[in-house]
Design a protein around this nucleic acid. Structure first.
Lengths: 348, 348
DNA sequence: ATCCTTTCAGAGAGCGCTCTCATGCTCGGC
DNA sequence: GCCGAGCATGAGAGCGCTCTCTGAAAGGAT
């Protein structure tokens, strides 16, 4: 890999020569100018402008051990990532927060085990200062890889590792899935529904489990026939709805673990001639604006502020990265659980 | 910005000491091992494994001036980027190709002028070896920024600069928008349609212009009332369709410049009681699987292989980056125009 | 005036790696 | 058996930057 022809960019040295000062002084000015007297700093700044000087990141990183880049690792194939508005919103929140602190976002999608290896190499390679990991399934090795690579990490969603100590030391941001699910079911009960079914997400993901647990908190004696597992896609939601109708034709309420699945369920209910909410009331989860507001009828759902969660993840990570501004030497950051809220529209 | 506590990773030096060779030899082995005798190389490899040595990217970049990362710059706000499946497919193609060559993808979204500045800084900062730029609107400054930053660039879609010399030296990948549009209109003509309207994309984008030009190639005397400008969103397509129906209630064919807009148009046609394709035949553009196959009725459209175009963009850029394997000193790469194809489904 | 403190600027040592160049070795040909 | 060709290895000079350490100058107190 031969070096490319030098782009011939001016270096610190050149600026220093031009301004008639030392490299150190230029460096100070470029990095905020603390401790450099006004006029001198001015002269340096002029030289920087004249030469069009731009710091070389690699050189900087080499000594500071900071990249100014954060990896966003999504454990889903591209197809899901780009299809599901959930990711879009979360990435938007992250991207905002990172940009505000002049950090770059490096997107890593890892669909299968082969990709995991590549992602692991990348994290280990020290290209990024930290990682935000998403959409973990059970036993996912990514966080462990990140930990071994010494890359500070914040996880989106509650992690599931059995070891309580590991768990305690892992930063994550999640919403109150269980509480939200309880609210959803209570809404259906309040509407007088008595045969309430649940379309769960993939049960290897903590969010799905927590929502199912919330459902069971309110309806502990639910028949297993009233629970069907989906996969967070509209088609999965539709299939689950079909199974439920087959097994329990008399159901009068459905709590779907995501708006996207609820949209599929609505389609099936309509096709089967059930009126929503008259015959069957439906509550979703997420309050994904692009979905919940546009279904027919508009979806009653549990709102979680996904974009905000993304922002919080980024914020948490950036805090954790800060060289302990705390006197104790340990920055005071901890995992965050965000609240949920029932949003009533037409479907329940 | 004080240095973080040294992660204490083993360095080349350490490996060299362990294997009892020089740094240079270890470097050679790590980078492919050319010119190192078998047994020695083996010893080095063993030392690497024992110490868990991983090369420091920053140090490498500092000397090679290569960082193994490519920026994908999308001149659209996040909302559009994550909503429009077009980008998803293109990014997928790019991501595949880059991953295959061990290059990282750095995603840069730039919604407004303020972001442009940040992106410019990033490109100029030398974080990436090259850039793929997308979704350019007229007079967009991004390619100029990239050029000034000395960052090799490939553009998605035909660029529009007036200066022919600049244009000639710019690499891009585009599909045969004009030819595809002609095919679309000819299909409608072949079905016996005589009042054919066009829903154009935003006319500050070359793709929209080319498709409109193709439309006019076949129907040079089209009334201006039969052309409405959309914005590549379903809502935009719907609004354009409404305008068209108002102005020309007797239209019997529509060529929409994208499937996404066509889906909006179909909704409006249905709402207005027009049967598709009986009363009004509709042809889209893109053959976006997730859209065209799921509309009601499924959409007849012009297929362009978006993912492949993404792949080609990445390939072109990687070639351009290669240190002139050509004897002439200039790698033989040039812009690419991919073909389009009519895909007949039910809507026309 | 003297001394001490404080502030500002420069010198210089790396950060970890690659790559050129010099060196020493092996080996084939005469 | 000698010489030069050819190849494997080592030595060392940077790449461009940050940061500590030191020295000089400036200010205040005595």
């Amino acid at each position: 890999m031969p070096a490319r022809p030098a782009a011939h960019r001016p270096t610190l040295e050149a600026v220093a020569a031009r301004a008639g000062v030392s490299r150190a002084t230029v460096s100070r000015v470029v990095n905020g100018g603390a401790g450099v007297r006004g006029p001198l700093a001015e002269r340096v700044r002029a030289a920087v402008d004249e030469l069009g000087y731009i710091p070389n990141q690699a050189a900087r990183t080499l000594v500071t051990r900071r990249n100014g880049a954060i990896a966003v690792v999504v454990a889903e194939p591209e197809s899901r990532f780009f299809t599901d508005p959930f990711f879009a919103q979360q990435v938007r929140g992250i991207s905002r927060e990172l940009a505000a602190h002049d950090n770059q976002l490096v997107l890593l999608l890892t669909g299968g085990a082969a990709d995991h290896e590549r992602v692991g190499r990348y994290l280990t390679g020290g290209h990024v200062d930290g990682a935000l990991i998403f959409s973990l399934h059970a036993d996912d090795s990514l966080p462990v890889i990140a930990r071994n690579a010494g890359v500070p990490t914040v996880i989106g969603g509650r992690p599931t590792w059995p070891d309580p100590d590991t768990r305690r030391r892992t930063l994550y941001v999640d919403c109150d899935n269980r509480g939200g699910a309880r609210d959803a079911v209570r809404r259906l009960l309040a509407l007088g529904r008595r045969r309430i079914a649940h379309i769960a997400g993939p049960l290897d993901q903590p969010a799905s489990i927590d929502r199912l647990d919330g459902f069971r908190d309110v309806l502990p004696d639910i028949a297993p026939g009233l629970i069907a597992e989906g996969d967070f896609t509209p088609e999965g939601g539709a299939r689950a709805m079909e199974r439920l109708l087959e097994r329990s034709p008399d159901l009068d309420g459905v709590f779907a673990a995501s708006d996207v699945m609820a949209s599929g369920a609505l389609r099936v209910l309509r096709a089967r001639g059930r009126r929503v909410p008259d015959d069957v009331a439906v509550v979703g989860f997420d309050d994904m604006v692009s979905v919940a507001e546009w279904t027919d009828p508009p979806l009653t759902t549990i709102r979680q502020d996904i974009e905000e969660m993304g922002r919080l993840m980024a914020q948490l990570l950036l805090h954790a990265l800060e060289p302990a501004s705390d006197p104790d030497g340990v920055p005071a950051v901890s995992s965050i659980i965000t609240p949920t809220r029932l949003v009533v529209r037409a479907s329940a």
